[in-house]
Amino acid sequence: MIFYLIAFGIVVTAILTIASRNSVVSALWLVACLFAQAILMVTLEAHLVAAMQVLLYAGAIMVLILFVIMLLNLTPKELKWKFIAGERLILGSGVIYLAGVMGLALWIIYKKGASFVPAAGGGTAGTVEAVGKLLLTKYALPFELVSVTLLVAIVGAILTGRGK
């Protein structure tokens, strides 16, 4: 039951994210959406991931995005709800696409009839110790690769953002 409550919240905030006229409001809805996702992860016993979701996504990435939005200081004209060119085609196809994918998903659920069954025996509590150990043993290589990616991204961002 609590899942459907949270899921409803996530979907609504996600839709509001892409539908808001003002990008600041949009960003805030996205923060709310991510927060709701964090709560969902807590219900899945992924505590570390939930905390990191808040810390990294809501706390760092979205602040950065808000920062940029405010730095750019868009004029009201920019904030208008505008479709892209060829809108009817894309809007139509987009709606069909969305309907199609969602219908497909629902159809699969209906057809397969499978429901979410947690694995027996537990052992999925995402404590810092357990996940951290996994990251530094089994996923040590991806971990290092991701660090290098981060470094490259930082350098790239600085070079791109520095301008002339």
Binding site: V54, L55, F67
Partner: peptide
């Protein structure tokens, strides 16, 4: 069980109040 990380996470949200107030 995430202790300090929770504190950091919540503290990182504190900036929203200030930034949104300013904006």
């Amino acid at each position: 069980n995430v202790g300090i990380i929770y504190i950091l996470a919540i503290a990182s949200l504190g900036v929203y109040g200030v930034i949104l107030a300013g904006w």
